[in-house]
Design a protein around this nucleic acid. Structure first.
Length: 419
RNA sequence: GUGGGAUUAGUUCAGUUGGUUAGAGCGCCAGUUUGUGGCACUGGAAGUCAUGGGUUCGAAUCCCAUAUCCCACCCCA
């Protein structure tokens, strides 16, 4: 049997990894500029954490988790997302007694057992962040603006922001009753999924794809019209904050979010370029989560961005991403003495951070030239007995063929300063 | 979990109604006299035709199963 990468996983090859490097560095930089610091959390956690944190009733927990028993008999789960682990760490490390807000970003892989399609993998990458301890709308505006700044800095344009408020447990409970009253007389006309949703999570019936065209769904009362006074004021604050810094948004009453922990503000950045999922980045507030995982009552908010989807968008918008020249110069050798000299020179250059290459294949001189050309190395120098005798070496710029002559003794210094 | 399409060299793909030794472009390796790259020319390596069964004198080709990939449903990043 041929060995291959498991379903839903993929290699990121050297030919494309620089795109990831750029995306990562960009995200880290933007987060840092907002005062967020990186946290690294375990790839796997106690299964209970996700059951409590993500929510027992969610699809993610019910059918998509990679769960196994380890040799000590513990139930372990590969993280299906980042928030639960960060919240666990927040509690475990007593961060609630550190100066608020606590703001951290992460850069992780996550795992969900799902069927693969465009923009969806079983192992996938997420950039995300969490902010704890701040209740007011300002922090909502801040994290949305982080995404906005990041997209701009990475050269993207026109990614639509959709926002909504799904209220707090209080107004949501009241609204659920209103919603059930609305649907109850018409349940026999609804799809099977919706019949299940009716008791479990009536909110989801609103964005049901199957029943979307039915008047009963279209005319359903909207949560956003039934927020309590506090939630309404909070949402107004978010909108005003976004407007104040000029971030465009549309209110989408149908954003519900698939994870149980969200409260109040929820948002998505959506695009047509990332498959039918559409969501590049999704997030929101989760004021009850820390408490439900066993910590103090601390409000929180965060988002996660699908890196594969983000990069799809970068490609779709044809944002140019240049591959860096890690190797600056290639030394072609004409003799054994030259090889020795080149070996020492390369060592010295690398000690000083200058990337360089020499022949490792025993190639003929002409073939070395060919290799350097195809590898796209920007500079090269030919070294043979003549150069060693004369003490002068010509460094050639491949792009235009121009040459500079350098004393052998100055070669390393010249490369450090000029390449 | 459910549907549709696909799978032949590293890669992109041909491959006739089932018929000898399965081909091409690109890429890779070497060479075109040990002094200057991308181009050109010459040569070379490279395939269990996804896997396992079946039909047949004979299967890359027809049938069944499985795996994987792509797309969609569900749901999500």
């Amino acid at each position: 049997m041929k060995l291959q990468a498991p379903k839903g996983t993929r290699d990121i090859l050297p030919s494309e990894i620089y795109r990831w490097h750029k995306a990562r560095k960009g995200f880290h930089d933007v987060c840092h500029s907002f005062g967020y610091e990186e946290i690294s959390i375990p790839t796997f956690e106690d299964t209970n954490l996700f059951q409590r944190g993500v929510g027992d009733t969610t699809d993610v927990v019910q059918k998509e988790m990679y769960t196994f028993e380890d040799k000590g008999g513990r139930s372990i789960t590969l993280r299906p997302e980042g928030t639960a682990g960060v919240v666990r760490s927040y509690i475990e490390n007593g961060m609630s007694s550190m100066p608020s807000p606590i703001r951290m970003f992460y850069d992780i892989t996550a795992f969900r057992y799902e069927n693969v399609q465009k923009g969806r993998y079983r192992e996938f990458h997420q950039f995300g962040l969490e902010a704890f301890g701040s209740e007011g709308p300002a922090i909502d505006v801040e994290i949305i603006s982080i995404v906005n700044v990041y997209f701009k800095k990475m050269g993207l344009s026109h990614i639509a922001l959709h926002i909504n408020s799904i209220g707090c447990p209080k107004c949501r409970a009241a609204y659920n009753e209103i919603l059930k009253d609305h649907f109850r007389p018409h349940m026999d006309t609804m799809c099977e999924d919706c019949k299940n949703r009716f008791e479990r999570n009536p909110l989801r019936m609103i964005d049901c794809k199957v029943d979307a065209e039915k008047d009963i769904v279209k005319n359903a009362p909207r949560l956003i019209d039934h927020l309590c006074d506090e939630c309404k004021a909070h949402f107004e604050g978010v909108k005003a904050g976004l407007e104040a810094i000029g971030i465009e948004y549309t209110i989408d009453p149908n954003i519900v979010r698939g994870l149980d922990y969200y409260t109040r503000t929820v948002f998505e950045f959506v695009s047509e370029n990332v498959g039918t999922q559409g969501t590049i980045c999704g997030g929101g507030r989760y004021d009850g989560l820390v408490e439900s995982v066993g910590g103090p009552h601390v409000p929180g908010i965060g988002f996660a961005m699908g890196v594969e989807r983000f990069l799809m968008e970068v490609e779709a918008q044809e944002v140019p991403v240049e591959k860096p020249d890690y190797v600056k110069i290639y030394f072609a050798s004409m003799s054994d003495d030259a090889k020795k000299f080149i070996g020492k020179t390369c060592y010295d250059l690398r000690l000083n951070g200058v990337g360089c290459e020499q022949d490792l294949m025993g190639r003929a001189f002409r073939a070395q030239m060919k290799y350097a050309g195809k590898a796209g190395i920007p500079y090269m120098a030919v070294i043979g007995d003549d150069e060693l005798a004369s003490g002068k070496i010509k460094i050639k710029k491949m792009e235009d063929g121009s040459e500079v002559e350098v004393e052998t003794a100055d070669l390393v210094t010249y490369c450090i300063n000029n390449l």
